[in-house]
């Protein structure tokens, strides 16, 4: 990369290189992540400060957490990073099928993580009675993990956009309009799949932990959501079968890579949050 810097003679808009040889998007993302470090740094320190000086009557986190579930979702998020890395690798080699598969896998794992978090929040509020305002621990816990969850959600949204983007036809000028409408339809189906999917998974998790679980009762209670979910999955499958030349190729590796940087960062933040907020409570 740096050897290209020497050829930077004329015009940045035409030369392949920047002054440093680092693509702008990548540099932008790295700098943004530096900013985000400070962001989560402040947020985590706020949680730690209040955890170290707990006000009277603070709940015992150990009585609230279910460490097994969180360990599971941590593992899932880590695995999503692996898939993300594979997606970047695939697009750099121009392997579109593999890129899409890995993007979908990342989305899927990200959604499992989010579902776990939704379930966890609902469980804490309803079963453990910890809310945003019930205690300082609740305030910092929900704000910290919720902000991280928002980052994951934005990442998932970005991944979905990127996935849909990969279907843009090569010769877009003539067919732009239909492709645009198609992309919106694609997105709406995706959104339906995500919302309904998270709903049925979380509902399932709630039922399975509650006494008197019966599969029939679950299926009956959420039939509509289940049907909708399966239908949207089918829709996604159909949309994914679009053929024809697309313009998504190696030249977009930088976009996927930038997104990957973000995704890995969000994972790393969780790797810090998980021990600080959860594991340290058990020592």
């Amino acid at each position: 990369m740096s050897s290209q810097a020497a050829t930077a003679l004329i015009d940045h808009h035409h030369d392949a290189t920047t002054s440093t040889g680092i693509p702008n998007k990548k540099l932008f993302m790295w700098t943004f992540l530096a900013s985000d470090c400070m962001f989560f740094g402040s947020l985590i320190s706020m949680h730690v400060v209040y955890r170290v000086h707990p006000p009277a009557g603070s709940p015992d986190p150990r009585s609230i957490f279910s460490i097994e579930l969180t360990s599971f979702s941590t593992f899932i998020l880590l695995m999503s990073s692996l898939l993300m890395a594979l997606a970047v690798n695939a697009i750099q080699k121009g392997n579109l099928r593999s890129t899409r598969r890995n993007l979908l896998g990342t989305i899927f794992f990200g959604l499992i993580f989010l579902s776990c978090q939704v379930y966890e929040f609902q469980h804490f509020v309803h079963a453990k009675g910890m809310t945003l305002s019930s205690s300082l621990f609740g305030s910092t816990f929900y704000t910290l993990t919720g902000t991280h969850g928002c980052h994951v959600a934005i990442g998932v949204l970005w991944l979905i956009f990127m996935y849909i983007r990969s279907f843009k036809p090569e010769n877009a000028d003539a067919s732009r309009k239909p492709w645009f409408i198609l992309s919106i339809v694609h997105f709406l189906i995706f959104a339906a799949a995500v919302v309904l999917g998270v709903h049925v998974v979380v509902a399932f998790a709630h039922q399975i932990t509650a006494p008197g679980f019966s599969l029939g009762g679950y299926l009956g209670g959420h039939a509509l959501a289940l049907v909708g979910f399966l239908a949207s999955l089918a829709g996604l499958y159909l949309m994914g079968r679009q053929s024809g030349e697309v313009d998504f190729n190696q030249s977009h590796a930088i976009d996927v890579e930038t997104m990957g940087l973000y995704w890995h960062f969000v994972d790393i933040v969780w790797i810090i949050i998980f021990p600080v907020v959860y594991l340290l409570e058990y020592f």
């Binding site: 402040s42 947020l43 706020m46 945003l132 305002s133 609740g138 305030s139």
Partner: peptide, 29 residues
């Protein structure tokens, strides 16, 4: 590097004011 700190402070204040959180609520610690 410095704006995130006030962003977080403002997030805490916003949670306090909008959703009844306790970041700077003296009576709750």
């Amino acid at each position: 590097l410095s704006f995130p700190a006030i962003t977080i402070a403002l997030v805490g204040l916003m949670m306090d004011r909008q959703f009844g959180a306790n970041f700077f609520e003296v009576s709750n610690g």
